[in-house]
Each structure stands twice: as structure tokens, then as C-alpha cells.
């Protein structure tokens, strides 16, 4: 269907944990935990700090689907999908982590 959208999917490999979506979200529905590791590349003089995403959650019970996170992501790690079938019996089950968020948009019914 045109002019409709469903869940927001995450591409964790594109996410740099930059926190922009977390800070711009008016509903505070996104949370990120991350840490950095030092990576030494061959030929590099100094090791490079690389962010590792530990946790990325969207709480669909809070999300109002404004799409600001999708707009603001500099690395296109967030995108709209057509998925709408992710209701839950418990409020806590509406908080989706990386695994659930990466599955959105991968199945076509």
C-alpha cells in the first residue's frame, strides 16, 4: 500500500551508536548501550577506536511513528518497513532489541 508505513527496522551493521536518534526522539523510546574497542589496522600508527553496539531497543509502546529517527540517522541504519503485525500481550514485549528490529522488512507476506 502506498502512503502507509509500519515498523522501523534496524541495520545494526550500519549503526555507529552515535546517539543521534536517541537524543532526537521526542518520546524517548530508543535506548542504546555501546562501548568502544581499540582496533589496530596494519600500517596504522595508532589504534583506532571503534564503537560496538551492545543494545539497541525501540519501545513500540512509546513510539508515535514520527520518523525523526529515520530522518536523522546519518548512516541509514534505520528505515521504514511495511510490517505491522507485531502486537504483544504484555507491554514489556513491545520493547524490541536488535534481533527483532533487524527482522523487520525481511519477510514478505
Amino acid at each position: 500500500m502506498q502512503n502507509t508505513h509500519g515498523a522501523i527496522a534496524l541495520d545494526a551493521s550500519a549503526c555507529t551508536s552515535c546517539m543521534l536518534c536517541v537524543r532526537e526522539c521526542p518520546d524517548w523510546c530508543i535506548e542504546i548501550d555501546s562501548h568502544t574497542v581499540e582496533v589496530t589496522e596494519p600500517g596504522a600508527r595508532r589504534p583506532r577506536s571503534v564503537a560496538v553496539l551492545d543494545r539497541f531497543t525501540i519501545d513500540w509502546g512509546l513510539c508515535m511513528y514520527c520518523g525523526i529517527c529515520v530522518e536523522v540517522c546519518p548512516f541509514d541504519a534505520l528505515r521504514w518497513t511495511g510490517d505491522t503485525d507485531y502486537s504483544a500481550a504484555e507491554v514489556d514485549d513491545l520493547r524490541h532489541g536488535v534481533e527483532r528490529l533487524e527482522q523487520f522488512g525481511t519477510t514478505s507476506d
Binding site: 551508536s17 552515535c18 546517539m19 536517541v22 537524543r23 526522539c25 524517548w28 530508543i30 535506548e31 542504546i32 548501550d33 555501546s34 562501548h35 568502544t36 577506536s49 564503537a51 560496538v52
Partner: peptide, 12 residues
């Protein structure tokens, strides 16, 4: 009663 999730610094 809930801390702002954006208060965490970005890594590095």
C-alpha cells in the same frame, strides 16, 4: 522518574 536515554555519551 526515568532518566533520559540520550544522556549517555556517544562512544569514544
Amino acid at each position: 522518574d526515568r532518566p533520559w536515554p540520550g544522556a549517555k555519551p556517544e562512544p569514544g
